[in-house]
Design a protein around this nucleic acid. Structure first.
Lengths: 260, 260
DNA sequence: AGGATCAAACCTGTCTTACAGCACGACCCT
DNA sequence: AGGGTCGTGCTGTAAGACAGGTTTGATCCT
């Protein structure tokens, strides 16, 4: 079991030193990606054990773990105690981490995130209107109805608000839009719920609900242009309320919580 | 130096087992994020050495490395041989990895990526028109001029095409849009260059160049609506050409290369 | 036959110790 | 001033060990 020791030494002599992509950990990463591709692995499928991989490659297990931690951090695999790693489906948490990191180092602020969220959700909603299934249209109508009876229960309202946006993303049929919307949900969910109970039953919330209802009507009607216009109205209203005179302190606290 | 051994044992007894977020590696991650926040570290700033961190936390160095590999994979830090890790600026490579992983496991295809790219670049271009600086407008004009004299040199043309899109993203003033566009550039650059030399000096390329020129004129004129419309025409044309009868084989090869 | 229990095997998370090689700054020489 | 050398700081990796979680198959009971 000495698969790599000799070629690696030779490679080092010929190239005179460390080459980009030549670390042992990077080799493990390449091996695992190749293994996944060659075997057509799909989310939920199991990988070989760390010990097996280490033996097969002649690399020590801690380095295999480092490589796998990298793949886990970018969402390709999922590691768990006592179980072999599995292939993981695309999800929003990775992008959430990336964005939160950027906020942490002061390169991005909540306004940037909100602006991108607005751009993306407006961009995708026409697709949702065009592509939604009957079941998705019915689900959107059900959600907006649940929201209507929760105008005095803001946390409950927010839960359905989240579902509404996720269902819209799902209706686009593009997993990447789903990932983005999921990331936004995770980023904004805390700041939307902390200390915002006072939003219940306000004129603002009633107005937001009307905008939601209009939006869903456009989706049901498969009217992409109307959907785009309705989503614009919805976000412009939400942004004005969120960043207007009343809310900054609350968003500021949320931002700090996001940095902890 | 026994900072964690006792509280960790106590925590384990009270909670009756492993709790989410309670792994040693996760503790290191939390510690480093806190360190970055408390010290206001910015891109380029150095972190303590692995050995120092391990001593400070009473955790073994391989686990510190695992944690740091995770943070490196999500773009917060950058690790290098012989040097302490540094805080890393936001960049597109992370998202590129995420998307390529999703393609690798068959959850996303090139069409999804292109569709999102279209949606996002159209969404952002109005912002670019509104916010661009005089220098950025001049740069865009210079780029489009450089493209005009490279209609018979496709690889050269592509280089400036990339710069054009990156400059537009920069003009939005939103780092998140820059990250997205950078990721798209990296994902599509290979498939755009492999075996596509035959595109040089074709009627298609001339048409694309005219669309580029129209687009830049709208940016220079600070006309957000015209910019949005021009970008739509540009992408609709590009997508029709890319996914039309002539190109599928080439894109298919690029996709396979992406999976290697 | 089906369900519960238990032991063994498989597996991950972490630690310790050690060594090879890279990066950087101080110092010396030309 | 510029280049070379050396020492110190630092990362990348290996080997071996142990604690504890998960899975699987055998056995027993109803």
């Amino acid at each position: 079991m000495r698969p790599l020791s000799e070629p690696n030494e030779l490679s080092r002599e010929l190239l005179g030193g460390r080459e980009a992509g030549e670390s042992r950990a990077d080799r493990v990463i390449a091996h695992l990606r190749d293994h996944i591709a060659r075997n057509g692995l799909r989310p939920g499928d199991r990988l070989p054990s760390e010990t097996r991989i280490a033996e097969d490659l002649g690399i020590s297990r801690p380095i295999v773990r480092e490589a796998m931690k990298t793949l886990a951090a970018t969402g390709l695999i999922e590691m768990a105690v006592g179980r072999r790693a599995t292939v993981s489906p695309l999800e929003g948490a990775i992008l959430r981490n990336v964005i939160e990191n950027a906020v942490l180092i002061g390169q991005v602020d909540v306004g940037h995130v909100m602006e991108m969220r607005r751009g993306i959700e407006i961009a995708m909603v026409g697709l949702a209107a065009t592509r939604r299934s009957d079941a998705q249209a019915a689900e959107l109508q059900r959600i907006v109805g649940e929201m209507a009876v929760r105008l005095d229960d803001f946390p409950g309202y927010i839960d359905f608000d989240v579902r509404l946006h996720l269902t819209l993303a799902e209706a686009t049929g593009n997993p990447l839009y789903q990932m983005l919307v999921e990331a936004f949900r995770q980023i904004f969910q805390r700041s939307m719920t902390v200390g915002i109970e006072r939003w219940a039953a306000t004129p603002e919330l009633h107005r937001v609900q009307r905008l939601h209802e209009e939006l869903v009507a456009t989706i049901v009607a498969r009217d992409a242009d109307a959907a785009t216009a309705a989503m614009q109205r919805h976000f412009d209203d939400a942004i004005r309320v969120m960043f207007g005179a009343i809310v900054p302190a609350s968003v500021g606290r949320g931002g700090e919580a996001d940095r902890s």
